[in-house]
Structures are given as C-alpha cells and as structure tokens.
C-alpha cells in the first residue's frame, strides 16, 4: 500500500472494523460466498469447499475491505460452521469417508455448531445464507433470523445458488419479506455487487 493510499484511508468514512458472521445451514454455500468476497476484495481465501456436509468445522476469520463509491468499510468476515439440529456420522459414509473419518467429522461438526452459536453474541452483523433451490421455511433459517432479530443484530438474507435452474429466489423473498434479501450466485459472482452495496448500507451506519 502506497503512502498516498494510507493517507486516503485515514479520511475514509465508516467504522474501523465490523464483525460479520456468515451463517446458515450446512452446504448452502457459506464458504463459497466468503471465498468470493475474499477474491473480489483481494483478501486471503477462507477455506476449502466440499460437497460433503460440514467441511467448515471451525469459524474462519478474514479481514475484507469493501469499497463502494467513496465509502470503504473494513469487515471482519467470519465464515462459521453450518448450523444444524442433528449430526449422524453414518451420513458421511455415503460420501466415501471411512468410519473413523466420519466419526471424527461428526464430532468436530457438533463442536463447530456450538462455536457458531456462541459467536452470535459477538458479531455486529450477519449474512444469513439460504440455498434458494431449497424450501426457505427451514427451522435453522427461522431460528437464526429470530435470534438475530431478538438481539437487534442487523442481518442480510443472502439467497444463494441463483445460477441453478431450480433456484427460486422469489420464494426466499416471500418467506423473509420483512428483511433485506439479496439473491446471488457466489459461485459465478452474479449480483455480488448488490450484496456489497447492501453490506455497506446495512452494516456501516
């Protein structure tokens, strides 16, 4: 960073750092979204993406600075483990994991959910990632959003996977009509600019 850029940074508006949790059920595309943000804003990637559920089993934190027009905000984005009400190691066997690997993954996944829930009390904002190819009336989505609202934590509902033909982002909008819903494809980058605008608008007041 040049001296001029550093000086410019001193005059930029917005809070210094805002902790934003990326929340949602397993395999809705949280890490894909976090990695997309990292790539778009030249930060270090968050982690590996996998079709096996519970690939992210510990919260991963990265600093991502997002600039919209003259406004620049530094976010501490925390990619959290997928929230679920149940974990069965036998499900992982279907993906070719050994019994030992599956049991270890299941145990780590349960600890990850507990850590993710504890983090709800520490964040200043949240991206609730919803798979727009699935029924949005999922108990995890509903409980998460109810909790954030009860604690006055601002959040954006991210209707992900709109690149898939079966995606129905309007169903997500209808379900969460009282909140800001941004349909995106974290995989292709479609509509990510809308999400960045919403993040700066909602989280950096």
């Amino acid at each position: 960073m040049s001296i001029l850029e550093k000086l410019m940074g001193l005059f930029r508006s917005g809070p210094k750092e805002v902790d934003i949790g990326v929340y949602g059920a397993p395999n809705v595309g949280k890490t894909t979204l976090a990695n997309r943000m990292a790539r778009d804003w030249e930060a270090k990637e968050f982690g590996r993406v996998s079709r096996v559920p519970h690939e992210t089993r510990k919260p991963v934190r990265r600093e991502v600075e997002i600039s919209i027009g003259s406004k620049s905000v530094r976010f501490n984005i925390v990619d959290t483990p997928g929230i679920t009400t149940k974990v069965d190691y036998r499900k992982f066997l279907e993906y070719g994991l050994s019994v030992e690997e599956a049991k270890r993954r299941a145990k780590e996944a349960t600890r990850g959910v507990v850590e993710a829930i504890k983090m709800l009390k520490k964040i200043q904002g949240a991206l609730v990632v919803v798979d727009s190819t699935r029924d949005p009336y999922d108990q995890v989505n509903i409980t998460l959003i109810g909790n954030l609202e009860a604690n006055d934590v601002p959040f954006i509902v991210v209707a992900n996977k709109i690149d898939l033909p079966e995606a129905d982002p309007e169903a997500v909008r209808d379900a969460f009509s009282d909140y800001t819903v941004v349909p995106v494809s974290a995989k292709t980058g479609r509509n990510m600019n809308k999400l960045y605008e919403a993040m700066v608008r909602e989280f950096a007041r």
Binding site: T85, K86, I117, T143, N147
Partner: peptide, 26 residues
C-alpha cells in the same frame, strides 16, 4: 422463543454421541 430454540440446538449438539443420540428435529 428463538433464544430457547437456539439453546436447544446448542445443547442437542453438546449431547450428540456417535451411536445413540443424533440430535433433534424441530
């Protein structure tokens, strides 16, 4: 309440053992 449901999820995860208790459906 959402807070109670969140606590139930948290406690369910703490109580998951690999053979008998897999968590809950809500």
């Amino acid at each position: 309440s959402p807070q109670v449901l969140t606590k139930i999820i948290e406690e369910a995860m703490k109580n998951v053992d690999l053979e008998e208790f897999k968590g809950v459906d809500i």
